[in-house]
Design a protein around this nucleic acid. Structure first.
Length: 155
DNA sequence: GCCAACGTTGGC
DNA sequence: GCCAACGTTGGC
């Protein structure tokens, strides 16, 4: 059973174009330091799950690409790298605290931006549109995925 | 830069 | 376990 997700990335850190420029258009989703988001990657994601690639903390936040989960979960190497901003001194190699998956971008889309998302009644309860939502990874219901796929293809 | 909303920390 | 203080996220 395929599941669907929305994953936020700051384009200043890693944009959809950055991922497309990487080998196999695939990157490890490192740097997540929120337990709920980690648990989605560690416990719920499966290879092949659909991913909406979302740009946050930028001029025009919105969905900018379609991606897929491209690996099983594995430990985020940046947690052990003292030079990384994501270093976690409390994490031990025998028992890593932070887990990630690889994400492969399948295609770049137009920017389906927040105001347009909010304008659709059928998307009202999309998690990312909820007030105060800060979670960088959120589940997307199949019915929302279908609507969003169409919107991304047909402006 | 502002600020609402949320998560984490740590004293008790 | 409670909760105040603090830190972070992220749209605007």
């Amino acid at each position: 059973m395929t599941s669907y997700w929305l994953m936020k990335s700051e384009p200043g850190e890693c944009s959809v174009d950055d991922v497309l420029a990487a080998p196999n258009a695939t990157v490890p989703w490192f740097g997540v330091r929120n337990y709920q988001a980690r648990n989605f990657m560690r416990d719920a994601m499966r290879v092949g799950d659909g991913v909406l690639f979302y740009h946050s903390s930028c001029a025009e936040p919105g969905i900018v690409g379609v991606a897929r989960v491209a690996s099983a979960p594995y430990p985020d190497p940046t947690q052990f790298d003292v030079k990384s901003p994501y270093f976690d001194a409390k994490s031990r190699r025998e028992e890593p605290r932070w887990t990630l998956v690889d994400v492969q971008v399948l295609r770049k889309t137009r920017n389906l931006a927040l105001p347009e998302l909010r304008a659709h009644d059928a998307l009202q309860d999309l998690v990312v549109l909820r007030k105060g939502n800060r979670l960088s990874i959120t589940p997307v219901e199949a019915r929302h995925w279908r609507i969003l796929s169409k919107l991304l293809d047909h402006p």
